[in-house]
Structures are given as C-alpha cells and as structure tokens.
C-alpha cells in the first residue's frame, strides 16, 4: 500500500486467477486505510469480489499506540487491537463504504471481544459529531455489521460461558465471524482452536457459511 498505483497493477495482474481470494494489507502501515489515495485499490477489491483483509502487523512507521513505544512484545500485542479499531473508523469516516458499498473488510488476528463496546462508543460519538462527516448517513455499528468480518482467533474471551454468550449477542451479527487457527504461529491456539464457550449456533456458520459468503472466490476457485 506504499504505492497504490503498483498495488492496482498487481491486483489487475492476478484478478483472473481465482486462487487469489483477498487483498492482504497490514493493520499498521504508513497512513490510515480510509485515506483517498487508497481508493483505487478498493474500487478493484469491490469489482473483483476480493475482500480487503487487514492482518495484524506493522511497518513501524509510527508508535504502536498513542502512548508511545512500548518496552515489551506483550504490550505491543495488546495495543495492536486498537490499530484495527482505528482502521475501522478511518474506513467508515473517510466515506469508503459510501463509495464502495459492497466492499468487505476482514479483520485478521484483531481480537473480537472489544467489538461491542467499540461499536457503542462509535455510535455515540457519531450521533454528536456526525456533522463533521455528513456523508456517513448510518450509524457506524450498522456499517460494521454489514461490511466487516472478523476472525475468531484470538477471541480475548471472558472466562465464563454466559459472558461469551453476551459478547456474541452484543456484537449482533453472526455472519461476521470467521474461523481461523493462526497455524503455524506461536500464538496458535492449540489442538482446539475454537474459542471456548462459543454458542453452538455460530460454529458451523463461522466455519463454513460465513467464509464462503465473505470470500466469494472460494466457490469460484474449483
């Protein structure tokens, strides 16, 4: 994404090959992903049904969080979830989904349990400050539920089943969830990569239905 023109060239070159199913970018690049100079990439993403996959990772162009440079990897890993949140806001408020309403964005290795409170705060702030961005005509949570998908590893779950159920309920859209193992990385959740206490109702959706809906080229690849 350092050079959107070259990115566009590469997407065009690969678009006919259905073995490619998404466009992969980092959560922390040089600038936030909503910025207009990236829009040619999103135009093609929408056109070729390639979701934009944002994966944890950084180019270290700026501090991993507004607090500055952390001492430990552990802290870095913790604040990474915030970068995803900033990317969601950037994509929404710059107006990307008004321009490209069918664009899907997949958050990969972002954590999941922060979604409800993040959406509440986004809605609240939008209600009061939306005059700054009047092109965003729906509440951010509605856009998130429609245009964003999230991989379920790590989940950052509360310890008890009731709370996990509450989180799933608060997120409010079962079609957002995608199974992921993170294999072979060391953060890999082990032999049972399905987060504990997930309601049965979402497991088959997140393992089969949702991925096929999110990555339409999976069906085309055969």
């Amino acid at each position: 994404m350092q050079d959107p023109d070259l990115a566009v060239e590469e997407i065009e070159r690969r678009a006919a090959d259905h073995r490619f199913v998404s466009i992969l970018v980092l959560a922390q690049g040089e600038t936030l992903l909503g910025r207009r100079h990236f829009w040619p990439v999103y135009r093609l993403a929408e056109k070729y049904k390639l979701p934009l996959a944002i994966h944890a990772g950084t180019q270290y162009r700026q501090a991993p969080s507004s607090a500055g440079w952390p001492s430990h990897r552990y802290e870095y890993y913790f604040v990474e979830a915030q970068a995803f949140q900033a990317q969601i806001l950037s994509l929404i408020y710059e107006g990307v989904f008004g321009k490209f309403p069918n664009l899907k964005v997949v958050l990969m290795e972002s954590g999941v349990s922060w979604l409800p409170a993040f959406m509440w705060r986004a809605n609240k702030t939008w209600r009061g400050v939306r005059v700054e961005v009047p092109w965003v005509e729906r509440e951010p949570a509605a856009i998130i539920r429609e245009n964003f998908r999230v991989t379920m590893q790590p989940f950052d779950a509360p310890g008890d089943a009731k709370s996990v159920e509450d989180i799933i309920d608060q997120i409010g859209s079962e079609k957002m969830f995608l199974f992921a193992s993170d294999y072979p990385h060391w953060q890999f959740d082990g032999d049972d990569p399905i987060p504990p206490n997930l309601p049965n109702s979402i497991i088959s959706k997140m393992c089969v239905d949702n991925p096929l809906e999110t990555f339409p080229r999976l069906s085309l690849a055969n």
Partner: peptide, 26 residues
C-alpha cells in the same frame, strides 16, 4: 446538513435544525 459524497457539505433548511447544546444531537 447532507452530503452527496465525501468532502462535500450541503446545507438546506437553514436555521430549522436544532443542535443540542451538550452532545450535539440534531
């Protein structure tokens, strides 16, 4: 205040909307 696309601000019915003095709800 409405907008046909990002960066464009259009005003209509000037003066007929209230913006709350606290949280800015319209």
């Amino acid at each position: 205040l409405t907008s046909p696309e990002p960066g464009i601000y259009q005003r209509s019915r000037v003066g007929e909307m209230l913006r709350c003095p606290w949280h800015g709800w319209e």
